[in-house]
Design a binder for these strands. Structure first.
Lengths: 203, 203
DNA sequence: CCATACATGTAAAGGGTTACATGATTAA
DNA sequence: TTAATCATGTAACCCTTTACATGTATGG
């Protein structure tokens, strides 16, 4: 399997904490690692099929209360010993870094000297999002040691969260600084405009 | 055009600084914005074709020194007024954030309590990369104001670079802290192993 | 009865990288 | 002459999101 295929391994990694349905897998992954990893159903269900095809997971079909032919069908996936070995091998491989792609920064770079209003709106939105993210990650780091969440290593989990925390702190600081710079530029633009108007009035 | 299509607009944005060939476009984009944006040829050439198809850029075919039917063919793209309007409209749109996807953090989270050696190697590598990145961005921020690089707004460019700087600083700090934590865990593991060995020696 | 969460999936479209293929120009 | 850089492009694959489709169980 190519090193790019991370989704099946992410699922396998979550299965190590116990057998789960596709739906629950996504919920747990997003609750535990949503701040630094995300998966959509369009990847999860095909990914689970691939795991069973490779013999890395077994699928058990369970039926709801009725037990008969009708009623809700639920698939519970369980990691096999072969899957555990595959996961260990993948975990030992060095992680791939993704190429940098930040559309906000690109737009900032490509923008004009006098394009100030739109960017300041984006930065303000980013500030709100990152502030919230920071609140989230700090709350998680606080409750995790007392909590009952299943995990393989609390320390490693906290390390990952600490990375998110530091990145968010940096983002927040940048937003605040950038916002004040943009404000100064807005004022300068406004002065420039009134000066031009005085020289060549429209009225 | 769907909001996801950023590549053609990135190209258009670079064309605003002057007519360029596809090859030069990539070189310039990577030199100016490579720290926060990247494009590969697999996107650039189809992207340029799309720009001409939409009438946002004009393609001029130039021939090398010979001038005859043989010799190197070079395509120089030039933004049209229509392209300028399309770019302005796109620039005004709020930037899309990409979903968080950090494989290092995922592997950290999915890893075992006793899996310490591999991660510390990755973190050490990241520390080197981020230190280098920090050097690069600081050098750029220093020489840019004196330099002769074409740009639309030096201030906006510096803002984008400052974001990269802060993110890299945060990464470096995290790497250092995490490395020392991992070292402590390694020592604890080693102690645990020798203690086990003392109780049940292999010899 | 209604909204929400549980639950499983598919199809289409698009986004993006990598490897391949080919050759000209230029400086050492 | 040889290596690096300039230059253009394609094909194959893979990754990913989004929208759609369908229904059950549960709590208010």
């Amino acid at each position: 399997m190519r090193p790019g295929r991370t989704t099946p391994f992410a699922l396998l990694g979550m299965l190590r904490l116990g057998p789960q349905s596709g739906y629950a897998l996504r919920r747990e992954l997003s609750a535990a690692a949503g701040l630094f990893w995300s998966e959509s159903y369009g990847q999860i269900y095909p990914g689970l099929r691939e795991l069973t095809r490779r013999g890395w997971a077994k699928r058990r079909v369970e039926r709801g209360a009725g037990g008969g032919p009708r009623g809700r069908v639920r698939h519970r996936y369980e990691m096999t010993p072969k899957g555990a070995r595959a996961l260990q091998a993948w975990l030992a491989l060095p992680p791939r870094r993704s190429a940098p792609r930040d559309e906000l920064l690109l737009k900032l770079y490509l923008g004009d000297r006098d394009t100030v209003d739109a960017p300041s709106g984006w930065v303000r939105r980013l500030l709100l999002e990152e502030t919230d993210r920071l609140r989230q990650v700090r709350r998680m780091m606080e409750i995790l040691p007392r909590g009952t969440h299943a995990h393989r290593s609390l320390r490693h989990w906290l390390m990952a969260l600490e990375f998110v925390e530091r990145q968010s702190e940096a983002s927040v600081a940048w937003c605040q600084r950038t916002l004040s710079t943009l404000e100064l530029m807005q004022e300068a633009n406004a002065r420039r405009r009134t000066a031009l108007q005085r020289r060549s009035p429209m009225e």
